[in-house]
Structure formats: structure tokens, C-alpha cells
């Protein structure tokens, strides 16, 4: 009898066998949550970089992550993008994609783009080529060998160039750009790749006040169409863009809420903001 039940279960007509399901199925956000991070733990040589961390990112929101050095912000990004393997816990993209089972390239294909803390662009390529390589295309070896730019793709690159304000520099080597321009180009590369989730690590480090302001505008305009997670130290910048802020401390979430709530939170004041408010200002 149990064999019969098992067979019935196996051949249920309302389900598709897992190995027959397309691997690149669209991201299921029917619960309005794009990224689920649950009970995550990572330690490096006994140091707990991530400690029982839980984090949910809604689809289309702009979220800021703040926290002192060593709070686990960059490690968290490494785990989401597949660079680091956690000791335990789960990370799901939508409801159907388990990110811990996939490598960096597959995760990028799903639509998670990442901007590094230190601007990382292809210095030996022109700005245009940098964007060309970032486009959302088939990135297997043979299709890439015979790839040619279509008119739509060219138009898309121009569009991104306009958005990041580097149209005039498109034929320049990326290595000759200023620090701020490199940061912009890297954000542009995420845009060109049509990533659904943008993980942006310290986007305004080393930028002038004016550049910072334009970056803030850009990131706010991206939210909605994309989901943006920003890691930043610059509190003024966070205040200017943030709707929801998550404070990390020693590898776990300390508080979550609007900027005002965060600033009023006694725990946060104690461990982060309150350390030396005057020092921050100076």
C-alpha cells in the first residue's frame, strides 16, 4: 500500500519533477520579498563574522546597511554573491532559488549585481566595452566568441552612458577615469546587466560632495525598478537616501527601521552612533 502511495506521490499530476523544471525559472516574488537570509552563520578561524543573521529585503526597496568595521557587511555580500560559503543558514532569492547551491556566475545570471568597495572596472578596456561586457547576454564561451552588438544593445549602452554621465568618456580607457567616475562606471555596469538586485558597497567613498549628491539621486531613482542594497559609512548620505536602514553589529542585525527610529534606538546609540557623535561630525 505504501508503495502505491509513493508512486501516486511521484506521479502527481499537479507537479513537475524537479529535474524537469527549467533551471533559469523566473524569480518568484509573490510574497513581495526578494531576498531571504535566515539563520546565517560564518566564522573565519574562530572569529564569528556572521552570527545568526536574519534579513529580508522587499522587492523594489532601497535598503541601507550600516555598521562599524567588522560588523559583517562585506561578508554578507560575499555570501549572497556566492564568493563565500556559510557554515549554516539559508539564502533564497525569491521563493524558488537557493543561492547557496549556485556559483558566482549562476547567481549573476539570476540577476544579482554587485559593486565592490574599491571601484573595480576593466581598466584596459574603454568605458563602452566595460558596459558591453556587462550586458545581459548569453555568457557561455561559444556565443561570446561569435557575439556582435545589436542595435538595441548599442542603444541600451548609450542609455546607461547617459544615466551615469559618461557619454563623453565612452572611448576612454576605464583606467584613466577619476575615482568617482570609476564608481559611476561600476554602477553603470550593474545597470547594463539589468540586475534585479543591486548590492552596492560604499558607493560614495572618495567622491566629492557634488558627485555624492548625484549618486544619491541615481540610487533613489533606481529603487522600484530594481531592488537596491547599499552599504555605506557616510551617515549624511544614508540619511539622504534611506527609507529603511538595517544596523549590523558583530555579525547580526541590531536594529531595523527608518533613520529616525534608528537614531532614537538606545542599542544603536550605545554601539554605533553614540560612540562619539562629535567625532562623527568632525
Amino acid at each position: 500500500m505504501s508503495a502505491m502511495t509513493q508512486i501516486r506521490e511521484t506521479f502527481r499530476r499537479d507537479q513537475v519533477w524537479s529535474f524537469l523544471q527549467p533551471a533559469q525559472a523566473s524569480v518568484d516574488v509573490s510574497k513581495d520579498i526578494l531576498l531571504y537570509v535566515e539563520d546565517l552563520n560564518v566564522s573565519f578561524d574562530g572569529f564569528k563574522a556572521i552570527n545568526n543573521l536574519n534579513l529580508y529585503i522587499n522587492d523594489g526597496e532601497l535598503r541601507c546597511l550600516i555598521g562599524a568595521n567588522g560588523a559583517g557587511k562585506t561578508t554578507l555580500m560575499d555570501i549572497i554573491t556566492g564568493k563565500t560559503e556559510p557554515d549554516s543558514g539559508s539564502v533564497w532569492f525569491g521563493q524558488t532559488h537557493n543561492l547557496l547551491e549556485q556559483d558566482e556566475a549562476a547567481i549573476a545570471h539570476l540577476g544579482i549585481g554587485r559593486k565592490f568597495q574599491k571601484p573595480t572596472v576593466f581598466e584596459e578596456h574603454t568605458v563602452f566595452t566595460n558596459l558591453e561586457l556587462s550586458l545581459k547576454t548569453n555568457k557561455a564561451v561559444l556565443p561570446t566568441l561569435f557575439a556582435r552588438l545589436s542595435t538595441q544593445q548599442k542603444a541600451r549602452i548609450q542609455e546607461v552612458l547617459d544615466t551615469i554621465g559618461l557619454s563623453e568618456q565612452q572611448d576612454q580607457m576605464a583606467g584613466s577615469l577619476s575615482h568617482g567616475q570609476k564608481q559611476w562606471l561600476e554602477i553603470g555596469m550593474l545597470l547594463a546587466s539589468d540586475s534585479r538586485l543591486l548590492l552596492v558597497d560604499e558607493p560614495v567613498a572618495g567622491m566629492t560632495a557634488e558627485e555624492t549628491e548625484r549618486t544619491a539621486e541615481l540610487l533613489t531613482s533606481l529603487a522600484g525598478k530594481h531592488t537596491v542594497v547599499v552599504v555605506e559609512h557616510d551617515m549624511a548620505f544614508v540619511r539622504s537616501i534611506a527609507r529603511t536602514v538595517t544596523v549590523l553589529h558583530q555579525g547580526s542585525v541590531l536594529a531595523e527601521g527608518t533613520m529616525d527610529e534608528i537614531q532614537a534606538n538606545p542599542d544603536v546609540i550605545e554601539v554605533y552612533l553614540g560612540e562619539d557623535p562629535e567625532g562623527e561630525a568632525a
Binding site: 549573476a108 565592490f116 576593466f122 555568457k139 555596469m189
Partner: peptide
């Protein structure tokens, strides 16, 4: 690109 920054290429989806 991967000669200069391999990790960046990987995060763009190139194996």
C-alpha cells in the same frame, strides 16, 4: 577583462 580583475568578470556572470 578576467586577466585584470577576475572576480569582477565572475560577478558579471562569466564562468
Amino acid at each position: 577583462a578576467l586577466r585584470d580583475t577576475e572576480s569582477r568578470s565572475r560577478f558579471l556572470g562569466y564562468r
